[in-house]
Amino acid sequence: MIGVYGALVLAAAAVFQSTLLPASAVAGVTPDVVLVVLVFVAQRNGVMTGQVCGFVAGVVVDAMGLAPLGFYALSYTVIGAAAGATRGKVFVDPVVMPFVFIVAAMVVKGLLGLLVAWLFGIAGVAPRVFSGAYLIEIAYSGLLAPVLFGLLGLAKWLRPDRRRGEIA
């Protein structure tokens, strides 16, 4: 059930990112809210939920723009699985670790984007990954992460570990 909630939240985050978030752009760059939400959901719920939610989020993002179907699905599946693998193994404080998680996830997203673009001959990805705009996006997303993690932490339906009385 948590996977369904997570997937719905991620789909809503993708729509939010496409329609409302551009108003908050810094130097024309918006944070990757979908990635932040994905890492939160995956880190709290484990590998299986993380990778399934990542796949769903990626398909939604692929379908809403110019990316070929599967581009973000692959990246977000890997990131969801990797974030899920840290569940219970890393102490997540309210500020530093969310920032570290998101910066790491953004770097992985960039590397996977380069790899997929190279494999399938997709033009335009490398200039964006190596642009200053991507650095701004990494910083913006990282700084937003503690705030979003705090807000999402209030949603108990995204945190089955709490319901079961476990310590994350």
């Binding site: 990778q51 990542g54 379908a63 070929p68 179907l69 599967g70 692959l74 399938f120």
Partner: peptide, 28 residues
């Protein structure tokens, strides 16, 4: 599950990056 999702993503990419008449993105 991980391998399946990655395989689905890759298959989607293979089809998406070719010029199919009806593309999966159109449905989405």
């Amino acid at each position: 599950t991980f391998a399946t999702l990655i395989a689905v993503s890759l298959f989607s990419l293979v089809f998406s990056t070719e010029s199919l008449r009806v593309r999966p993105e159109q449905i989405g």
